[in-house]
Design a protein around this nucleic acid. Structure first.
Lengths: 211, 211
DNA sequence: ACCTGAACACCGTTCAAGT
DNA sequence: ACCTGAACACCGTTCAAGT
């Protein structure tokens, strides 16, 4: 998969090893999954010694954190780029599909971004702000839909609800917890679940009225 | 944490090593997390040789799968036990709280159950049916709420929507993706997000009407 | 400043041998 | 039938030394 795993390179200094490590790690990640991504295998694929990575990242966790940060930035980008043009009545549906597509395109990265691999206690500032940026795109979408200020409590609650739903659906699909028949498209799954919420809330409203 | 890690035991045969491995694995899991749960450390804690576990489980993946199966069975149990008595208008809210409490009580187990650690391709039959049992409790709750047959399309869609939401919220909270102020209880977070859905659907209904 | 080499303390897993 | 012992091919991480 990589150019020269075994053959030694000609110059002692690589020059841009940080970038190469990140780029190769990103593709290895999708091949083997976040838990099996190994620094040694990564270095070996780039033709450097196992310990070379430690001059660019303090440890494995920091490399993973940088990959996750990349992921959040790309997700934020994709969400704001593709959701702006959606008409109001297709806003939620379209937004969820964009979100799910990102996860489908980068399954291992998505799992890394939201999984337990990222130690919450030693989380770099970068990662935290990138994550916040992605969430803010969701808040913008919701504020737009509700025609309410972005810092209102309704927007925050609705955005949190939306994130819970779409992340939950994404995670269930990605981890194959749901045994979806392969002929049902992601689009239809989103339609069906959104319709499911509607049914649920009508029933709930009816039950509280009748008391 | 365990009785005799170093001291050798008196009899060559343990007798119930399978059960001991599972029980100890369960508590080690919550201490170190699923990705760092090691068969060698587990065997050493029980005073047996690193390879002893292989006479009871084909490999590490199978032990994890059995733990996850236990988890799904317990979740199903807890959901059906505690949700039966809930009045209709508190059904969703109460159910979600029971679900979230299970995850709070067994965070590493929950992450294992829904995480990428479980290889989807080689999943034992047991695990699949236990998972299905847990989901069926959700369907029962929804069918009860909607007063519709359990095999109706509305129930299936609404159950899938509910599972997406509560799993998403649980995962976001467990992985500390959400920076929840510590004074806000889980109960209030559920209230707020459910209220968020309501706001969202009223706005959506209004937007489709006005066209 | 950047990378190597040797070393340490771990892993999962196999297989032949012991009880 | 159940467990050990030795071995293999891996890990992450450290530290002194080379370029």
């Amino acid at each position: 998969m990589r150019s020269s795993p075994t053959r030694p390179r000609r110059n002692y200094h690589v020059g841009n090893l940080s970038e190469q490590l990140l780029a190769t790690a990103r593709s290895m990640l999708e091949e083997v999954g976040s838990s099996k991504l190994s620094l040694r295998a990564l270095c070996s694929a780039l033709g450097v010694t196992p310990t070379a990575a430690y001059h660019h990242f303090t440890n494995r966790a920091e490399l993973l954190a940088q990959l996750a940060t990349e992921g959040y930035l790309e997700l934020a980008e994709v969400l704001s780029q593709n959701s702006a043009a959606l008409p109001t009545q297709k806003k939620i549906h379209g937004f969820c599909l964009i979100y799910l597509n990102f996860a489908r395109d980068n399954p291992a990265l998505y799992q890394l971004m939201f999984g337990p691999e990222l130690a919450a206690d030693t989380m770099p500032e970068q990662l935290h702000t990138a994550r916040q940026l992605a969430f803010s795109k969701l808040e913008i979408m919701v504020a737009d839909l509700l025609k309410r200020p972005i810092d209102s409590i309704d927007v925050r609650n609705a955005a949190l609800a939306s994130w819970s739903y779409i992340h939950g659906l994404t995670a269930l699909l990605l981890h194959e917890v749901l045994q979806r028949p392969s002929e049902v498209s992601d689009q239809r799954i989103i339609e069906r679940t959104l319709a499911g919420f509607e049914v649920l809330f009508k029933a709930h409203a009816a039950s509280t009225e009748s008391i």
